[in-house]
């Protein structure tokens, strides 16, 4: 006793097309509001340090995920860091090849307890090395919108 009838011909296979017809508008929230305001308006990069357990977060947050304390203040950091890991991407989101490969890296930020930040690395794939020193490249103030691309990427320090 089969659960389903056997399909003998592919033409009997049919499907129905559709999409989820919505888009999203996200507020940044309390923590990222502070981070991106400072980035946009002052070109500053903010971390935050838990007053109780001392854990440092980058970008800044309003609560400590380890001890659940509120974190009110922020902590300026240089934005420099060390490459923790990276990948060289050859494909776009839709699977088509990129004209030039793009390097995406995880950067361990100076002045934090190893907080890692994802961004693009402006370097040739052959010159990239884990452990290399990196610094952020910011857009000029008038081009900054308060988003992640206010930092264009990171390059060799």
């Amino acid at each position: 006793m089969g659960l389903t009838e056997r399909i003998e011909r592919n033409v009997d296979l049919s499907y129905f097309e559709g999409r989820i017809p919505v888009n999203y508008l996200y507020t940044y929230g309390l923590g990222f509001e502070k981070f991106f305001r400072a980035l946009k308006e002052e070109g500053k990069l903010l971390a935050s340090k838990c007053p109780r357990c001392g854990t440092t977060y980058f970008p800044c947050r309003v609560f400590c995920e380890q001890c659940f304390c509120e974190i009110e203040g922020t902590l300026g950091v240089s934005g420099e860091g060390t490459l923790y890991s990276y990948s060289v991407c050859h494909l776009n989101m839709d699977g088509s090849p990129k004209k030039t490969p793009e390097v995406v890296g995880l950067i361990e930020m100076d002045g934090t307890d190893g907080a890692k930040f994802v961004h693009l690395i402006d370097a040739q794939p052959e010159e990239i090395q884990i452990g290399m020193r990196l610094k952020p490249v910011l857009k000029p103030k008038k081009e900054r919108n308060g988003d992640i691309f206010d930092i264009k990427g990171f390059k060799k320090a």
Binding site: L13, E17, L25
Partner: peptide
């Protein structure tokens, strides 16, 4: 500050 995102997905649901 806010950011807008539109998921770029289409589905083909097998009948």
């Amino acid at each position: 500050l806010s950011i807008r995102q539109t998921p770029d997905l289409e589905y083909a649901w097998d009948n």
